[in-house]
Write a protein that binds this DNA or RNA. Structure first.
Lengths: 84, 84
DNA sequence: TTAACATATCAATCATTGTTGATATGTTAT
DNA sequence: ATAACATATCAACAATGATTGATATGTTAA
């Protein structure tokens, strides 16, 4: 749980998660969107993946990442307990 | 928003927030609960306060901290957008 | 006023993490 | 097989953050 929070608590990674709510994207698309270097995007993706917030879908030359809705919902559920 | 996530994405601080869902607590009570030093608890509280996740209520010798439900709900709402 | 208690702050250290540049791996097309 | 593209990994550095010990501030009781 804390790992998920740590993973999402960073500007670039939060934005990646936001972008992936729309549709799955490959690394080069994320590089364009975020305006940061490719290796840095890869690194942030690996952090999100280790936290199980995203999944990888190798598709030929491109690697597409998708949001792991199940994990997101688990996170929501945990935080919901702290509110009303 | 990111500040809130960063603040809550740490074991001790997450536990503080959890404890404060029950009732408001003073620093010395949190020291007992968490089993860490007083100055460290104070530091974590200051991080949570700066992120507006908690509020301070000075009450004589003791300083009681309360959860800022409004902020928690704001956080929930933001994360809810990422789920279903 | 002094003592005891509760809390905050400061400086220093250590650990973690974000960032960069270079390079390796893997896939597709020619 | 070679070239071009897409991505991952590695080493190094910088920045940020957690922890500790010492000390200051502020409140209550004797």
């Amino acid at each position: 749980m804390i790992d998920m929070l740590k993973a999402i608590a960073e500007e670039n990674r939060f934005k990646i998660v936001e972008l992936l709510t729309e549709k799955s994207l490959c690394v080069c698309e994320l590089v364009d969107e975020l305006g940061i270097s490719q290796n840095l995007v890869s690194h942030h993706l690996s952090v999100l993946k280790k936290a199980e917030l995203i999944d990888l879908c190798r598709c030929g030359k491109n690697n597409y990442y998708t949001l792991n809705k199940q994990s997101i919902n688990k996170l929501n559920k945990t935080l919901a307990k702290l509110g009303d």
